[in-house]
Design a protein around this nucleic acid. Structure first.
Lengths: 240, 240
DNA sequence: CGTCGCTTTGAAGAATTTCAATGCTTGTGG
DNA sequence: CCACAAGCATTGAAATTCTTCAAAGCGACG
């Protein structure tokens, strides 16, 4: 992996200025300087390490710089329900702002580098930098729009449509980060895909097989190549 | 209907001060005064009237004062996919903030009174009133959390669980507004419930019948009485 | 070399959808 | 005032999709 914009180890977040990875908005230079001081950088997370647990106090939000994060709610019976995957350039953790505690647990799917944006700093900045404030609200709004899109997907569609839509979503999001949109490695397992999409592992596996035999994708375990984006698009858009 | 806190016709939004209907946060009195000047009140909407369409410019968000609103995405084939129902005291329209255009169409399910909170005003206020700014972000965060909860529900559960969860959700939300939590009239049709929950009308209808024969609810068309809240709770929480 | 984690495949069973038909309520025009 | 159309809800029976249960393959890693 790690075709990401900021290499993992010895990075300085000055990259965030060149490539608007952490906060992908065109900010004034002046604003960007201030922003740089706010972002805290930690050491990369290993697979299965968590950023925060359900119930943890909300400290702020996080931007994925490389790797991938999954967010999951824990059901009453202890099983997990994945509510989102976050790829490089995306922000997660907003769920904790409402009542001061996270409703999700956030876990690294692979070796992952993140920036944190502490709540107080965000608050201070929101006061002094109108652009940044608007940007934060736009980011939250985007999360809402994405979740609702996902809702629409889950309510309406068959297994094939869901998986087609997920693959296209990942493709688009990688493209936005100037990464390859047609060849990529899935950061999550079949089981995690199934969990997220409300399908069993077996169904996910079967759909991948079917997609291959139809020539829509090539899949070698987690390495995916999209061969017929238009057809996938059509598939995901049609109602069953 | 219209057991809502602010009666429809001749209202002044001073009610919003007494009963924190429009913005349900404990604000300083001083802040509340300023807020009152911001909220615009229009005439009540009739059933099927829309607040905004997909693609409309984002002008701000709206609070439901009485009645009910549905938000829906239009699929490429023209069918609608309901992404949320908004009851008295709840805020909708955040989806348009991200890119300046609404991704949903918002429609009144019945005669509905709303307040609008214009974007510029919200922006000004966010600058001068830190509490209010935090409150806006909390509201957005709550929308995210609710949508994600819904995602979890749709991914994991059977028809009965989905419907049980929807009934409980409505019940809780009415209770928060000091309305009856066990007897209420659904503002939406079976078809709309099905659309929202990813089920067919027929399945929705059958589940209502099943719930009645099990003594969990009494239902006369849209008039619902919850008879066994704990059992519904248990049902909605168990995985299938 | 064997175990562990993940993926794939098959066959049977269950839940939901689809198709078809009927009933109930409301509103409207004759 | 009645009749009829339109919209919504309900019910049955057949068809389909997805899940469940069971088993086996593959690859990585100690």
């Amino acid at each position: 992996m790690s075709t990401a914009s900021c290499p993992n180890g010895t990075t300085s977040c000055h990259n965030c200025r060149m490539n608007p990875l952490c906060l992908p908005l065109a900010l004034q230079d002046r604003d960007m300087n201030k922003l740089d001081q706010v972002i805290e950088r930690g050491k990369p997370l290993q697979r299965k390490q968590t950023v925060f647990f359900v119930g943890d106090n909300y400290q702020g939000v996080y931007a994925v710089r490389s790797g991938a994060i999954k967010a999951a709610i824990t059901n009453s019976d202890g099983t997990e329900q994945i509510t989102g995957f976050y790829l490089p350039g995306e922000i997660f953790g907003w769920d904790g702002l409402a009542d001061g505690r996270h409703s999700n647990t956030a876990t690294a799917l692979e070796t992952t580098a993140i920036c944190s944006i502490p709540a107080e700093r965000m608050d201070e900045l929101s006061m002094t930098l109108p652009d940044l404030r608007r940007h934060f609200m736009q980011l939250m709004s985007r999360e809402i729009a994405v979740d609702q899109q996902m809702l629409a997907l889950l309510s309406k569609s068959s297994a094939e449509q869901r998986i087609a839509a997920l693959l296209l979503s990942i493709s688009n999001r990688l493209a936005r980060q100037k990464l390859s949109a047609t060849r990529f490695r899935l950061p999550m397992s079949r089981a995690e895909i199934g969990n997220y999409l409300g399908l069993t592992v077996e169904t996910v596996s079967r759909v991948f097989t079917r997609f291959q035999s139809k020539g829509l994708i090539a899949a070698d375990k987690r390495d995916i190549t999209l061969l017929a984006v238009e057809q996938l698009q059509a598939l995901s858009e049609d109602n069953r």
